[in-house]
Simulated assay, not measured.
Amino acid sequence: MKALTIRQPYADAIVHGHHTHGYKRTENRSRPIPPKYLGQTILIHAAKAPHPAAEIWGPRPDVRSALLATAVLTSCHFDGAGCCAPWGMPNWFHWQLDDVQPLTTPVPASGQLGFWTPPDNVLAAVPEAPTR
């Protein structure tokens, strides 16, 4: 199972929602989803560092360097007109997330840019993740 690292507070918005914007189901990326990942379940990983330009909002878990949830990558499209409000950014690819399932307990893990495969000992600590 692959993981995707997302900076806070956006990882929390995917997993726990936002008090005014609801759950984040659009992940903004500069490239489209590689076709082999469409329809696949992935792990959502919270990065060690927060997003430098992100608006910080009220109480939230703010867990860092950990796997937080599973999600299915259902579709991808390029936004040239401002769709997917309030989370979609114009002129970025919008990766659509569905069936987000928070893990019972966050699993500590170092992440990487792009898709990455957690080591076996980390996957073993994620009861919700299928084994390789």
Rank of each mutant, 00 (worst) to 15 (best):
A11K: 11
A81L: 09
F93I: 09
D99C: 06
G80L: 07
T41P: 01
L43C: 09
T5Q: 13
E55W: 04
T26I: 15
W95Q: 07
I33V: 15
C84L: 06
G17I: 09
W57M: 03
H94V: 04
A11P: 09
R132Y: 10
P32R: 09
A47I: 07
P52C: 11
G39E: 07
H16L: 08
A11S: 12
R31F: 12
W92P: 00
K48A: 14
L4G: 06
V122D: 06
K48T: 14
L113N: 00
S110N: 02
G88C: 06
Q8P: 11
T20K: 14
A85M: 07
Q96N: 07
S65L: 02
P90H: 05
G111R: 07
P119E: 04
H77E: 13
V122C: 07
P90R: 11
R25K: 13
R7D: 02
I56C: 05
A53C: 05
W116S: 02
R60F: 07
R60T: 11
A46Q: 03
V126G: 02
T104E: 13
T74Y: 00
K24H: 09
Q101V: 13
V107I: 09
L4F: 08
V63P: 01
K48E: 14
H18P: 04
A47G: 10
W87T: 04
V107T: 08
I56G: 03
H18F: 09
A69W: 04
P50L: 10
Q8E: 12
D79H: 12
E27L: 10
D62G: 09
A53I: 08
G82Q: 10
A81Y: 10
D62S: 10
G58C: 08
V63N: 04
L43P: 07
G111L: 08
R31P: 00
I42H: 11
L4C: 01
H94S: 02
I33R: 06
G111I: 05
D120T: 13
E128W: 05
N121Y: 12
A85G: 10
A3H: 04
H18L: 10
P118C: 08
G82M: 12
W95T: 03
P119N: 06
I33D: 09
Q112H: 14
P108V: 00
A49Q: 12
L43Q: 03
I56A: 11
L123W: 02
I6P: 01
L103E: 05
R64W: 05
P102A: 14
A129R: 08
V72R: 13
Y10F: 15
F93G: 00
T70I: 05
E128H: 07
D12P: 09
A53E: 15
A129S: 13
I42R: 03
C84P: 00
A129G: 08
A3L: 02
D98W: 01
V107Y: 00
R31L: 13
A53N: 15
G17M: 11
A66W: 03
T26R: 02
W116Y: 11
P34S: 11
L73S: 07
A129N: 14
H16T: 02
D98A: 15
L43V: 12
T41H: 05
N91G: 03
W116E: 09
P102N: 10
V15I: 04
M1C: 01
A49D: 15
N91S: 13
